[in-house]
């Protein structure tokens, strides 16, 4: 079986063709421009992941929210659940870039970290 993918690992967005066996094993990857594309094709066909970015509320700061991201990739199927969980999170200023906002979100083993500063009012 053949699967056509668009690599999302960088903005070039190469078109990739993956050949799969009946049991879902990756037999070949073509069309990618670099190694990251091959890794993406493997992961997309076996265990698709995405990085998550959102905001969480912050108290005591000049701004009402601070942006966050997942420190690593999250299984695609858990993306929405993690985003929903972040809607109820509030942190206290000051916040620095890289501060862990949620540890091990929903048991994925991935931390959510701040991507901007929030200074004290």
């Amino acid at each position: 079986m053949k699967r056509e993918l668009v690599c999302v690992a960088c903005p070039l967005g190469c078109g990739i063709t993956v050949e799969l066996s009946d049991s879902g094993e990756v037999l070949s990857v073509t069309g990618n421009t670099c190694k990251r594309g091959e890794a993406y094709a493997h992961s997309e066909c076996t265990n698709p992941t995405r990085s998550l970015t959102s905001t969480v509320k912050v108290t005591g700061s000049t701004l009402p929210v601070v942006p966050v991201k997942s420190a690593g990739p999250i299984p695609k199927g858990k993306l929405i659940d993690c985003a929903v969980a972040l809607r109820d999170v509030t942190v206290k200023a000051p916040v620095k870039i890289g501060d862990v906002v949620v540890k091990d979100i929903l048991g994925t083993g991935v931390d959510i970290v701040a991507t901007n500063i929030a200074e004290v009012k």
Partner: peptide, 9 residues
């Protein structure tokens, strides 16, 4: 791969 605010900072 950075977010916008990280790139700016």
């Amino acid at each position: 791969e950075l977010s916008g605010p990280e790139y700016a900072s």
